[in-house]
Computed example of a mutant assay.
Amino acid sequence: MKKISLLLLALALSVVACKQNKKDTEVVENEIIEVETNISKTLTVGLSPKSDSNVSGSVVFTEENGTVNMVASITGAEPGVHAIHIHASSDCSSPDGTSTGGHWNPTAQPHGKWGAETGYHKGDIGNFTADENGNATVEFSTDAWCIGCDDDTKNIIGKGIIVHAGVDDFTTQPTGDAGGRVSCAGIIE
């Protein structure tokens, strides 16, 4: 009788152990593992002369890890300081570039220098200096932009990039008194 009782007890313990192992397996099978993906997006647009200028070039936007890097390569500008901004529309059809509308300002802020406590447009990139041959490279990075995301306050697709004839003074509203538009590119995919 003792042998049968011990045998039944051993059998019962092995069944419980098997069920416990099965539960552990089920937990592991249902475990969610988060995998970080690093998706990089790149968009290149061509700058076309406007307002009877010779200013052209290209702008490369690259988004990686939530940051958009912009590198603009500009040729044919007058030597000196010029403003560059993102404008509300990608329409570069007008001869003077005004078809792009005003600065891109989805958060209704005053015009200003990027990062200013008093506010700034999402399109207020700033100024750059063209060398004695009219060439310049502008580099800019921000996590306040995205390429094709669903956030209208960050998405640069459908906007235009404008090179201005003059300098952005960062105070005149709403343009910074940057002068005419001498080059334009639509930011489109």
Rank of each mutant, 00 (worst) to 15 (best):
E31F: 15
T118R: 14
F128N: 00
A83L: 12
E64S: 15
A165D: 13
N133C: 03
Q20N: 13
S94P: 02
D131S: 02
F61Y: 09
H87C: 06
T171D: 13
L13C: 11
N38K: 06
G66A: 07
D52F: 15
L7A: 14
A108M: 04
G57K: 05
T37M: 12
V68Q: 03
I84A: 04
E189W: 03
G80Q: 04
T142M: 02
V71F: 01
D91I: 05
P174C: 06
L47N: 03
E64K: 14
T172H: 11
A72I: 05
N21F: 11
D150W: 09
A178W: 06
N30V: 12
D150I: 11
D177P: 05
K22S: 08
N30D: 15
W114T: 04
K23R: 15
S90C: 01
N38S: 08
W114P: 04
C146W: 08
T37F: 11
S183G: 11
V35P: 13
G119V: 07
C184H: 04
A88Y: 11
A77E: 04
H103S: 14
V167F: 12
P106W: 03
A17Y: 05
L43I: 01
K122C: 06
A88G: 01
C18H: 00
G80P: 01
A83E: 08
C92S: 05
K50S: 03
A165K: 15
V182M: 08
G80A: 02
L11P: 01
W104L: 04
L43E: 02
H82E: 06
V28A: 12
H82G: 09
V27P: 06
D96H: 10
D131I: 03
D124W: 10
A72L: 07
L8V: 14
K122T: 08
G126A: 09
S48K: 07
L43D: 00
T137C: 04
H164Q: 13
N21I: 05
C149L: 08
A17M: 05
D96V: 10
A17S: 07
G102F: 07
H103L: 13
W145V: 00
A83P: 10
G115P: 07
V81W: 00
G179H: 08
S58H: 11
G123W: 06
V60K: 06
S89A: 09
N135E: 12
D143H: 12
F170T: 14
G46H: 12
D152K: 14
S93V: 02
T42P: 06
I4Q: 07
I157A: 06
I157Y: 08
P110E: 10
S99Y: 03
T98V: 08
L47C: 02
E132Y: 00
I161A: 01
S90D: 09
A136Q: 03
I187R: 00
I156Q: 00
Y120R: 09
F170H: 14
D168T: 15
T171Q: 14
T42Y: 05
A144D: 15
T118G: 13
H85W: 07
N38T: 09
D52T: 15
E64W: 02
F128R: 05
P79M: 06
